[in-house]
Nucleic acid binder design. Structure first.
Lengths: 340, 340
DNA sequence: CTGAAAGCGCTTACAG
DNA sequence: CTGAAAGCGCTTACAG
């Protein structure tokens, strides 16, 4: 392995000078610098990461700590986040380390062993056990998701409250008053996710405010169960004229179940989906949708974290990113004779 | 930060002994060990990763180096791989570092700066510039994908050749003789992917062997272009009775285009899709499919790499994992009056 | 403009 | 069964 010692010998200078060429933190005579750079190229020198970290107590690495949401859909959604984060990290010159940590022990390890300069949490719960651990360690951290008490963490997330309000408004504008909202199973919501809970709460509130009636309908994401749930939901729709689908596994199953009944979207019922922009881009999902932009959310999270790492004094921030509505023609105006 | 020095003082022993308790590589008196472990707990000691790495020249980290395939679909597919890899790495006690590297420079950096003990390459091309770099560095590496010359790397991939042969056999068994294969655009195939090329080649060969006729039909994955391509492909299908869809972006678009024409699957035409198992699990994709198991492929890649790291003498291996067929009812037997 | 040297927190031959 | 000490490859105050 080539070290600065080798480079120093090759260039006829001290290790000190080589090191300062590397960091640029002390002026070096132009001629000397050139000799050193040539020596580096000739020998194929690259800085040893462990040695630098030990010396500076910095790693230029961001740790991404996921939690253990189960299920195929969550795996895919998480993949889009990890993908976005790694791209954003690379752009800012940081490496990215990935760890899964359901209970907090791995977080403690990352913090204390100084494997990273900062942490981004995914799959954040209301009372997330990882938050007090990172706060106590003093490592900068960003919560991708809104916990009840973020303490000193920066928070970045899609604005689910706005998303819910906008969804209801859009349906209201088209004349819909009775709406079904297909969401995750109550077990999954209870165990895991704050964003879903916030979304549903705002659906209800906006509904009341607009004089609409929204029925929350839980739907499994699991094979076998999902078809049954969807069929039941459609059968029990009563006077509902529109469906909000906030369960990506249900999106396609729902469409097939509707077709099997000879119903037509949007003539017989309107649909708005809630999903990741990246998902409908990749698979050409068929509905008008409010889409959260994973690319933007992850980029923001990385920017915030790097900011925090480089300016430790800054106040914690909270950034909620608005989703945008993509019209794919699955929402129609309610016919007057249906309205009453 | 708590160091072994602090632990040693607290337990009344030398740093040496503390270190050997950590590694277990030298026997320590039971009573002494207990005192030391108690001291560690009391002080909240965790080993400093950089210091250990510098000393041992090991990192207990695996680097995953992706390449820059463009497009929303590739992003999602890559996400499933990264997800699987990180889970497998965690199970074997390794951390996972992610880097994107289109041309080889980042690979060189990972190798020389010793950020990881081994590398797994994703998005591998036929003549991948990253391979000679890692071989020259001597770092163990696994290629997730089959390059023309893997040199000393282990190779792990889905068995696309077998997948193609089985696909044709399945269609043949149902009486199909004229088949359309919807694949990626020729630009994408040429630039990027060996697996697609291998798949198509075997489709042709199996076809000849079985007395079938397969037409390769290129289809974009991009908005705007994809609908046009799909429509053209359906219109030009001639006597073809079955479609193989090896382009996940096209899966749903195809179905809608078929419906719009009043055609019915499988009565009017049969369909077999080729996709990641994780994708149809998550989204309930509607077709009978040969599915590659990302979970299994990634787990195998990590196992192979760890094997290589811990037993450097081993011979390089090549593991091709068979895809399994999931029948979702989209393939029907050809009617005799259609056959002739 | 440049260097000698201490120090970062570990591991591990060497010695007892 | 245990310790003193050198060394891993950097950085950076201190000195000139």
């Amino acid at each position: 392995m080539v070290t600065i010692k080798d480079v120093a010998r090759e260039a006829g200078v001290s290790k000190t000078t080589v090191s300062f060429v590397l960091s640029g933190s002390r002026p070096v005579a132009a001629a000397t610098e050139q000799r050193i750079r040539e020596a580096m190229d000739r020998l194929g020198y690259t800085v040893n990461h462990a040695a630098r970290s030990l010396s500076t107590a910095r790693t230029t690495t961001i740790a991404v700590v996921t939690s253990n949401r189960q299920g195929a859909y969550f795996d895919i959604a998480r993949g889009t986040y990890i993908n976005g984060l790694s791209r954003a990290a690379a752009e800012t010159g940081y490496d990215m380390l990935i760890t899964n940590d359901p209970d907090g022990s791995a977080t403690e390890n990352v913090c204390r062993s100084r494997k990273a300069d900062g942490i981004i949490f995914l799959d954040v719960r209301q009372n997330d056990p990882r938050i007090p651990i990172v706060v106590q360690s003093g490592l900068p951290a960003v919560s991708l998701g809104v916990p009840l008490d973020p303490q000193t963490l920066d928070v970045v997330d899609t604005d689910f409250t706005d998303m819910a309000a906008s969804t209801m408004q859009t349906l209201h504008n088209a004349g819909h008053r009775e709406v079904s909202v297909i969401t995750l199973s109550s077990r999954v919501i209870a165990e895991q996710l704050n964003d879903t809970a916030r979304f549903l709460q705002e659906i209800q509130q906006s509904g009341e405010h607009l004089g609409m009636h929204a029925t929350i309908r839980h739907c499994s994401t699991r094979p076998g169960l999902i078809d049954e749930d969807i069929n039941r939901i459609i059968d029990e729709r009563g006077a509902d004229t529109a469906f909000v689908i906030h369960n990506e596994s249900a999106v396609l199953v729902f469409r097939r179940a509707v077709e099997r009944r000879g119903l037509h979207i949007p003539d017989d019922l309107s649909v708005i989906a809630i999903n990741e922009k990246q998902m409908s881009d990749a698979l050409y999902l068929p509905y008008s949708a409010y889409e959260n932009d994973v690319e933007l959310v992850t980029r923001t999270a990385v920017t915030k974290l790097v900011d925090r790492i480089e300016h430790p004094g800054n106040q914690p921030t909270k950034t909620l990113i608005k989703a945008s509505y993509i019209d794919r023609g699955s929402v129609a105006a309610v016919q007057f004779d249906i309205l009453k």
